[in-house]
């Protein structure tokens, strides 16, 4: 489903050149739950950003269902992110000025859809993560775990095929972390959503179908 070939990502400034990723070759099959592990700064998030089309590789290519997609123009990339991919971030990235349900609706704003349908689907997604009673709250009125659940609802509201989670439990205590992990596993098993999750937590990684390890930007077998 997702194939990365010969990926290299280099950050250049006037004085230094930093190799974030080198010689990455990876294939993720549909319905897999892959965790990415490695020490801080090893390129885990960079890899996730490349899979999620938020960044472009310096060299190499990203393929989805056999089609090379990393060279798409802005509009096509935006459409791809909107239809195929959902993101869950470590720091939630909820918009504080919008209510919970308005936050969850964001991906649907960029599709042709009636407001009532958008609202219905957002509430349904919130229900799935156990927050149907908090639709009109604002993010600051929720605990960290609840905020991450809202973020997951936002990520799945558009029924994406791929869920990319960047340390989704990193800002939560272990109890909350396990709850979030349970939701991700449920999405993977029930909806066959392909999940790629970056984590530092070996206990969470062990629950996934495959672990990818990175050290200094390189894949470790």
């Amino acid at each position: 489903m997702i194939r990365l070939e010969g990926i290299e990502k280099v950050y250049r400034t006037e004085r230094i050149e930093t190799v974030a990723l080198a010689d990455i070759n990876l294939e993720v099959r549909e319905g897999e739950f892959v965790s990415v592990m490695g020490p801080s700064g090893c390129g885990k998030s960079t890899l996730l950003n490349l899979i999620g089309l938020l960044d472009t590789p310096t060299s190499g290519s990203v393929h989805l269902d056999g089609t090379r997609i990393d060279s798409y123009q802005d509009k096509a990339l935006a459409r791809m992110r909107n239809r195929q991919i959902g993101f869950v971030f470590q720091t939630f990235h909820l918009i504080a000025d919008l209510s919970v349900v308005d936050n969850v609706e964001i991906p649907l704003l960029y599709r042709r859809m009636a407001a009532s349908e958008r609202r219905r689907r957002a509430i349904e997604a919130l229900d799935r993560v156990g927050l149907a009673s908090r639709v009109h709250h604002f993010p600051t009125q929720l605990s960290g775990g609840q905020q991450q659940r809202v973020a997951i609802a936002r990520a799945i509201v558009g029924n994406p095929r791929i869920l990319l989670a960047d340390e989704p439990t990193g800002n939560l205590d272990s109890q909350m972390g396990h709850e979030i992990m349970a939701i991700l596993k449920e999405l993977n098993s029930e909806l066959q959503t392909t999940v790629v999750m970056v984590t530092h937590d070996a206990r969470l990684a062990e629950q996934t179908t495959r672990i990818l390890r990175l050290i200094d930007g390189r894949q470790v077998n």
């Binding site: 992110r81 909107n82 993101f87 964001i106 991906p107 960029y110 936002r154």
Partner: peptide, 16 residues
């Protein structure tokens, strides 16, 4: 900026 990043991540094009 963070909101812009979120909107882009969830499918907003630059033009939108």
């Amino acid at each position: 900026a963070s909101e812009i990043g979120v909107r882009k991540a969830f499918g907003a094009s630059s033009r939108t």
